[in-house]
Design a protein around this nucleic acid. Structure first.
Length: 579
DNA sequence: ACGCTCGCATCAGGTGGGAAACGG
DNA sequence: CCGTTTCCCACCTGATGCGAGCGT
């Protein structure tokens, strides 16, 4: 975000901190990074999200280990006209400007009162819990955008999200059928505008927005085994501002420009024919990942966001002025590290052409089974780390224990802890002997999951032919790929000891601290207009993006109790579970 | 002859930039 | 007037089809 450092300074100077924070997520995160953010008064209304699951809860949902929403601050703004799931699935913590009525939603709601510092002793819910566990893939990239306040273009014909939503799901009943869909809801009751290099609120949001807010995954309904088999990608999801288009409502979500939205993943157990059993209370689960929050725009406002998009979206390569020199020159000659230029990102394609392996996590589960180390999960849930090992410690995927976001840390939409992102990855900092688990993904694949090497699922026009082409071990694979597995039988993550140990040594030892403040002076913004030439810009901190899936396998509430690094690692792969 | 792989060409569609159009 | 939206552009990726080359 532009001017972030300045904003941060403004906070410490005692300026209207609350308002500033509301207007400047980046600054918020800066504060978070310093560890001071959550210590005072968690704002309440300006804190909208906390990872949580909402479900017709089984009794254990009330367990303190569950993901308990941060009630005081609210999580999702819920206008009275919210669609069914908007109104019914969000927690009671939702800001209820017009009154939130759980009963009206026709579902029971799990909205225990928030208790500061509760659950400290239980940072991870029972793995055998009845609820699904959802991992946000590509989370590092999401975080990158989030720290600048993610913007998503909306057009009449619909624009894909970038980064797009991708999840791995575990702990579903392999034989049961589920509908999986994404809903995008208002994140707050405000209208936003980009002013003075930062996002500021500007009046009330238009609650009368109409149009489709739900995108049902094209493979729905399907079995739990199917959903757990590979990443569930929503890359085909499009955002539009055209309320009139009805023909493609199934593919498009209608949003309003300059409003802040929060995507939510819903998993609904259904009958085999896809019909939802309304009478059942225990079959709907909702997962919110605060880092996926974004402001819908018709044109990019923040040049940092633009640059991030250009840097990371392969379809925007044409806008990389120095594409040739940067991305095709021998690595030592590159002016700027490419997104996979990190020492950990050496699944570089054996091609001169630069390909961004930002989504290795999206195919990691699609590797031939014989490449999957299949051993019992031995890593304590609270401290497990798993990342793809590459020879140099490249991490493509992380399973991090500890916590995603702390309840008492009052994590909310704007309060993601990004410290890990800024270079706290030194393994020496790993607390409790946490080891980063490198999961070899082996190939730098094309960006989208429909790539031949990536997941064959998710309705990307996957073709069996491509599946056949997936080599058991690609030539440039440093070594066989130990990986994490969502066991279809158990729905549990299985890690190998080898991987686990490997990761400890290799992962994140070559951290690339950004050194760049998320917020830059306006001058930088101007410079960005010309686009990067030499860059200290956002792309220099790409390393985390290469480890695309990170698990935070602990209840949000215990975040604050985690050692800093654990906390940081946790956010590399959001892992919300629904006990 | 048949099947397979590979390389190339083509096409559809996604991308941000920038100018024009729109609207309060 | 100014902020927002729309449209078009050049450039790119990915999917697909085709033919050449090769081995059986």
């Amino acid at each position: 975000m532009l001017g972030g450092e300045g904003e941060s300074g403004a906070y410490t100077a005692g300026k209207d901190a609350a308002e500033e924070k509301r207007a400047s997520p980046a600054a918020d995160e800066d504060e978070s990074a310093t560890g001071t953010r959550y210590e005072h008064g968690m704002g309440g209304a300006d804190r909208y999200y906390i990872p949580h699951t909402i479900s017709k809860q089984s009794p254990e949902a009330q367990n303190p280990c569950s993901f308990i929403p941060y009630t005081p601050g609210g999580t999702v703004y819920s206008p009275p006209s919210a669609a069914r799931y908007s109104s019914s699935l969000h927690l009671g913590s939702v800001l209820p400007p017009a009154g939130y009525s759980p009963s009206a939603a026709g579902r029971t709601h799990f909205s225990p009162p928030y208790q500061h510092g509760q659950n400290l002793g239980c940072i991870y819910p029972p793995y055998t819990g009845s609820g699904a566990q959802v991992y946000l893939c590509n989370r590092p990239l999401w975080l990158k955008f989030h720290r600048h306040q993610t913007e998503m273009i909306i057009t009449k014909q619909g624009r894909r999200m970038f980064p797009f939503l991708g999840f791995n799901i575990a702990a579903l009943n392999v034989t049961s059928h589920y509908n999986v869909f994404v809903e995008v809801v208002l994140a707050d009751p405000n209208h936003w505008r980009f002013q003075g290099g930062k996002w500021v609120t500007c009046g009330k949001a238009d609650n009368s927005s109409q149009g489709n807010k739900v995108y049902i995954h094209p493979e729905s309904p399907n079995t739990g085994a199917h959903w757990m088999r590979q990443e569930i990608s929503f890359s085909k999801l499009k955002l539009t501002n055209n309320k009139g288009t009805s023909h493609s409502t199934s593919q498009m979500i209608v949003l309003q420009s300059l409003h802040k939205y929060q995507p939510r993943l819903h998993i609904v157990e259904v009958a085999e024919d896809g019909v939802e059993d309304i009478s059942s209370d225990n079959k709907t689960q909702c997962f919110t990942f605060p880092e996926t929050q974004f402001i819908a725009v018709t044109a990019y406002q923040n040049t940092d966001i633009t640059q991030l998009k250009i840097d990371h979206n392969p379809f925007a390569k044409g806008f990389r002025d120095n594409y040739d020199s940067i991305y095709t020159a021998p690595e030592p000659d590159r002016l700027t590290p490419s997104p996979n230029d990190s020492p950990r990102a050496h699944q570089i394609v054996p091609s001169a052409r630069y390909m961004q392996p930002l989504f290795q996590d999206q195919f990691v589960n699609n590797l031939p089974q014989n490449r999957i180390y299949n051993c019992e999960r031995t890593v304590p849930q609270t401290n497990s780390l798993l990342s793809p090992p590459s020879e140099d410690g490249t991490s493509q995927r992380w399973f991090v224990t500890s916590v995603q976001q702390g309840g008492n840390s009052t994590s909310t939409s704007n309060k993601l802890d990004l410290t890990h992102y800024e270079g706290e990855y030194s393994s020496s900092l790993l607390p409790y002997g946490i080891k980063s688990l490198s999961m070899q993904t082996t190939h730098a694949l094309s960006y989208y999951p429909d790539s031949p090497f990536t997941t064959m699922s998710a309705g990307w026009g996957s073709r069996a032919a491509y599946q056949r082409k997936v080599p058991p071990s690609l030539p440039w694979s440093p070594r066989p790929s130990p990986t994490a597995v969502f066991s279809e039988e158990s729905g549990k993550v299985k890690l190998t000891e080898e991987v686990y140990n490997d990761a400890l040594v290799s992962s994140w030892t070559e951290t690339q601290p950004s050194g760049q403040s998320p917020n830059k002076a306006d001058s930088y913004s101007i410079a960005c207009k010309r686009r990067r030439l030499s860059h200290n810009g956002p792309s220099t901190e790409d390393s985390p993006a290469n480890s695309k899936c990170v698990v935070s396998a602990a209840p949000i509430n215990s975040f604050s109790k985690e050692p800093p690094l654990t906390k940081g690692l946790a956010s590399f792969y959001s892992f919300y579970t629904n006990p």
